Computed example of a mutant assay.
Amino acid sequence: MNQVIGLTGGIASGKSTASDYIKQKGYPVLDADIYAKKSTAKDGPAYPGIIEHFGNDILQEDGEIDRRKLGAVIFNDTKEREVLNKLVHPEVRKLMDSDKEAALSESHVFLDIPLLFENGLDRQCDITLTVYVDQETQIERLMARNNFDRSEALARINSQMPLSEKKEKSTKVLDNSGSKADLFEQIDEFISSIEK
């Protein structure tokens, strides 16, 4: 029987690298971030509620939401972030669920969800996978990737559930402290285990 596999990680842990590799192996990977962008686009289901709450100040000239302006509001205000999540997450779930059901008839399905445990979506999965790195590696990679100083990197990392906690909650952990080849080898082993 085909299984639903939740794939998660933290910022700069290598989740996207793992996700891309799994796609290359031919498995459907449903990416929550892509569904979030669809649901908040001008013709998306969450758009009217977002504009009603946050106002026209967060719009670009073409009427699309300016993610940077909206981000400036929600990353500095927990209550506003909760409002946005309540508007967007149910729409993301609806879109993902219909694609998940269609894909499950063909194969195992991976759900790429950054906030898998935070939003209780692990309960919809048969297996949960966390791409893990220690915090120091995470800080260094984030500083290098986004040109952040140490305090900016830490602020982003600390706004998420600690990877150590996600690691504890997971069925399986992919340790990404080494090379990409090491990570890919662990993914290959995992895939062969579910195909048995």
Rank of each mutant, 00 (worst) to 15 (best):
R81I: 00
M161C: 08
T78K: 12
S192P: 06
Q24T: 07
L95C: 10
K167W: 11
I50D: 00
Q138C: 02
M1R: 03
L163H: 03
D122H: 08
E168T: 13
L70F: 06
N146A: 14
K42E: 07
P162F: 06
T78W: 01
D134R: 02
K69V: 02
L59I: 04
E189G: 07
K15D: 04
Y35I: 03
V29T: 07
S151E: 12
E168Q: 12
D99V: 08
Q135N: 12
C125I: 01
D66S: 07
D99R: 12
D99N: 14
Y47D: 11
Y27G: 11
E80M: 12
E91W: 02
D126L: 03
K196T: 11
L115A: 14
H108S: 06
E101L: 10
L183S: 05
G120C: 09
I194L: 10
E101G: 10
K172S: 04
F54S: 13
D175V: 03
N76S: 13
D66A: 11
S159H: 11
E195S: 15
D43Q: 14
N146S: 10
S19D: 07
K25S: 15
T78Y: 06
Y21N: 09
D97K: 14
K25H: 13
V4K: 08
N56K: 15
D33E: 09
D33A: 13
N158M: 09
P114I: 01
A181G: 04
A36I: 03
A103D: 06
D99T: 10
D66W: 00
N146Y: 04
L115Y: 05
D33M: 13
V92S: 14
F117L: 05
I191T: 04
